[in-house]
């Protein structure tokens, strides 16, 4: 079977009564890498949180489906088990739960009772992925994200991505706060996942990540909508020229949510 399809149609999302997303349309297929760029406060994280089921975000209209299944009807864990993954911009810290225990629960949640991954196999897999991500082996026994540096948290998100092997992953600013070496390592992890069965939506502010992971499609978000889409060359133009030309082209004065003409 070819890859999955995540399909977002005319999605409207509100938070605490305020409408943030105002009709987002996107389709991500297995094998494709999409990038979303856009100035601060334009709704990128809102889109990813709404897809994953963050408790604070309210879907006011529109639809999200994964291979035709209604994602918005699912509980958060069901969305994950259906094949969605979100590397969060700000991952939670959980005291007392070791990274390894957490990862094993996550892996086993996709398996039937009685068919859990053997401890040996789990450790071997985790060790090899951690090595690829150049993570200190101690990180496995540390409490989940607790006291992790910004860069360590991002690597840990990618470790989870690699262990869980979702069908469609959304990576929200996975490159923020990474030094250049870490950026390469994280990109290596993501590229490792590339293939027909893996679709990816990368939210980023920087072209430099896209130098390592070449996207098939680039979208620009402003005012809670996708206002422009194109190929990799769009990201390059944004890098060198900024967003002003798009704003001018579209007649937008203030790109943040709530400032539509």
């Amino acid at each position: 079977m070819a890859g999955s399809v995540l399909s977002i149609k005319d999605l409207h999302v509100a938070i605490e009564g305020k409408e943030i997303l105002k009709g987002v349309n996107l389709e991500i297929k297995g094998g494709e890498i999409h990038a979303i760029m856009g100035p601060n406060g334009t709704g990128k994280s809102t889109l990813s949180s709404a897809i994953m089921g963050h408790p604070k975000y309210e879907i006011t209209s529109g639809s999200v489906t994964l291979d035709g299944e209604d994602v918005l009807e699912m509980e958060v864990d069901e969305r994950a088990k259906a094949g969605l993954f979100l590397a969060m911009q700000y991952p939670s810290e959980i005291n007392g739960v070791t990274n390894a225990d957490f990862l094993r629960s996550a892996v086993n949640s996709r398996r039937e009772e009685g068919k859990e991954i053997s401890l040996m196999k789990f450790i071997r897999t985790m060790d090899s992925k951690m090595e690829l991500l150049e993570m200190d082996p101690d990180m496995a026994q540390r409490y989940l994200n607790e006291g992790f540096s910004g860069g360590e948290k991002k690597r840990n998100e990618i470790l989870q991505l690699m262990m869980i092997e979702p069908k469609i992953a959304i990576l929200d600013e996975i490159d923020s706060g990474l030094d250049i070496d870490a950026l390469k390592v994280v990109s290596k992890g993501i590229n490792e996942m590339r293939g027909e069965d893996f679709g990816c939506l990368i939210i980023t502010h920087y072209q430099r990540l896209l130098n390592y992971i070449t996207p098939d499609h680039v979208h620009v978000m402003m005012q809670g909508r996708v206002v422009k889409s194109g190929g990799p060359e769009l990201a390059q133009r944004l890098e060198s020229e900024g967003y002003d030309w798009i704003k001018k082209e579209l007649g937008i004065e203030d790109e943040t949510v709530g400032h539509e003409a």
Binding site: M52, G53, H54, P55, E75, V76, D77, R79, A80, K81, F85, L86, M88, P91, S92, I94, N95, G96, V97, D101, F102, S105, A106, S109, R110, Y143, L144, Q160, I164
Partner: peptide, 22 residues
């Protein structure tokens, strides 16, 4: 939410958090 977004059920997530707390 974070734990559940990795496929962990609410019950199991709560269990992890409680054990983690203790």
């Amino acid at each position: 939410y974070y734990l559940m977004s990795r496929g962990i059920s609410q019950k199991e997530a709560e269990r992890l958090i409680i054990h983690g707390f203790l």
